[in-house]
Design a protein around this nucleic acid. Structure first.
Length: 273
DNA sequence: CCAGTATCCTGCAGGC
DNA sequence: TGCCTGCAGGATACTG
């Protein structure tokens, strides 16, 4: 389940392995992803371009090229970007293959097809609906100052607000769950019923957990892997996600599970207020 | 405008 | 063993 730390891990790996590689060909299955995978457009635009260092915005990756333009990628739930030798066997559900000038290829693999790969011409980035709707980058130094008032203005449960990409871009179910536990805040608490001081603590907890996860190369529950196929190491550091029914590592209470905003949520009844 | 829910998709786990 | 059901949840379309 790629959230910000997983996407950032992929970005860093691709920055090393793809920079200055020239694209020579593109193949695609034509199967629909979240948005239609427009293979003819990708085949018309990508070959001949050189890949630059990728950027990340929320959970989106922007593979910038020279001449300018970008391949916008979202990994959805089960998406992977893999770099492998062109001769090697392609995994099931490989929807897009970008061949490089050094005999390797970039593969977009996504069994559940919640992901996305679209060409953005110069200038399109500013008007792309997915990107334009994104809120604050949670790791931005201004987040602890700017985010609490936005959360305080809303009646929805804090967990739903943290996962709302229009407010904060990049936090998903795993890290929202962990940050709320770290901050000692109940996931179902309404934003407007939480003090600014607690909201600030919550935002700092979000930053902390995201940074630690990036340091560990992301979290692998089932599907995530870096471009080389390697799993992230943060799963062992998850304190509550996936541990419903276990003891709370902080107070020894029982971790409960509920559904909030359609997502499973784990929290400690005793020490999360 | 805001909050909550249904929807897309596949793989896997659990029950029988 | 095999079939069925439910769950996992990213973004987004829809409803109230």
């Amino acid at each position: 389940m790629p959230e910000l730390p997983e996407v950032e891990t992929v970005r860093r790996a691709l920055a090393h392995s793809l920079a200055r590689r020239r694209i020579v060909a593109v193949e695609g299955t034509g199967l629909a992803l979240r948005r239609p995978l427009d293979v003819p457009v990708l085949q018309a635009r990508l070959p001949g371009r050189t890949l630059l260092a990728p950027r990340r915005r929320g959970k989106f990756l922007l593979l910038d090229t020279d001449p300018s333009g970008s391949l916008l990628v979202h990994l959805g739930m089960t998406g992977r970007l893999l770099v492998a030798d062109a001769g090697s066997e392609r995994p099931r559900h490989t929807h897009l293959v970008v061949s490089l000038d050094d005999g390797r290829e970039l593969r977009f693999v996504d069994p559940r097809r919640f992901g996305l790969a679209v060409w953005l011409a110069p200038g399109q980035e500013a008007v792309d609906p997915s990107l334009a709707a994104l809120g604050l980058e949670p790791l931005d130094p201004t987040a602890p100052r700017l985010l609490p008032p936005l959360l305080h203005a809303r009646r929805a449960p804090l967990k739903a607000l943290l996962m709302d990409q229009r407010l904060v871009a990049g936090v998903g179910n795993i890290y929202a769950t962990e940050a709320l536990w770290r901050a000692g805040v109940r996931p179902g608490r309404a934003g407007c019923r939480t003090s600014p001081a607690r909201l600030r603590r919550l935002v700092l907890a979000v930053q902390e957990v995201l940074e630690e996860a990036i340091d560990q190369g992301g979290t692998t529950i089932r599907d995530f892997a870096g471009p080389g196929g390697d799993p992230g190491a943060f799963a062992v550091r998850l304190q509550v996600y996936g541990h419903a029914g276990a003891r709370c590592p902080r107070c020894g209470g029982t971790l409960r599970t509920t559904r909030l905003a359609g997502r499973s949520t784990v929290w400690c009844l005793r020490c999360q207020r």
